[in-house]
């Protein structure tokens, strides 16, 4: 298979510096609002700070891939004496929890590294320097085209309601347009 150059974008998270303010959640939801900056709602954010204050856990986690089913089992991590909950580090929008889903529709959310901006805005607005953005190029094998947001959303709806119902709803919507 042919190789292509791929831009790898990384956000390094230094959780030890996190002061727990959740400003990243605020700016993320604001920049992804339609129109941009028209509203704020951390429940729509693609980054969430998992918080257990007295356990000294402030852990920023980014929304990753949509997963249609739960994991077969759960893990609990203990690191430096701190016990992280089941699913604590997981980025998936999945049926086992409310995280990384649009609160009204339940559609999955995924970090897009603020496509269209110079760099992710959570990095820009975190004044405690928890988040650092890095870019590099890597030679990788060519892969099949990635799913667009719309298709991910449609798949999630089909999983939740069944393909037939989604098709019916789309037909109704098309007629009313």
């Amino acid at each position: 298979m042919a190789t292509v150059k791929k831009r790898i974008r990384t956000i390094k998270v230094d959780a030890d510096k996190c002061n727990g303010c959740r400003g990243c959640e605020v700016i993320c939801s604001a920049i992804h609002a339609q129109p941009k900056y028209s509203s704020v709602n951390p429940a729509r954010s693609r980054i969430r700070v998992i918080t257990h204050r007295l356990q000294d856990i402030w852990l920023p986690v980014f929304a990753g891939e949509y997963a249609r089913s739960e994991c077969a089992g759960r893990e609990v991590y203990t690191i430096a004496g701190k016990q992280y909950d089941e699913c604590g580090f997981c980025r998936a929008s999945c049926p086992s929890r409310g995280l990384f889903k649009e609160p009204d529709s339940g559609l999955p959310l995924k970090c897009d590294m603020c496509e269209g901006e110079d760099r992710p805005q959570c990095v820009e607005w975190c004044l405690s320097h928890v988040l650092t953005y890095e870019e590099r190029e890597e030679e990788v094998e060519e892969e099949a085209e990635k799913l667009e947001d719309l298709q991910i959303g449609l798949e999630a709806l089909a999983d939740k309601f069944g393909v037939e119902k989604v098709k019916d709803a789309m037909a109704r919507l098309s007629r009313s347009e």
Binding site: N19, G20, C21, R22, G23, V26, R53, L54, D56, W58, C126, L127, S128
Partner: peptide, 27 residues
């Protein structure tokens, strides 16, 4: 002082998580 912390959406560090000897933790 275990960690310096803030309130909602604030970049400052006015508070702290306190873990002092056998005293239960608080802020």
């Amino acid at each position: 002082i275990k960690r310096l912390i803030s309130c909602f959406n604030c970049p400052q560090h006015c508070g702290a998580l306190i873990s002092y000897k056998d005293v239960p933790r608080y802020m």
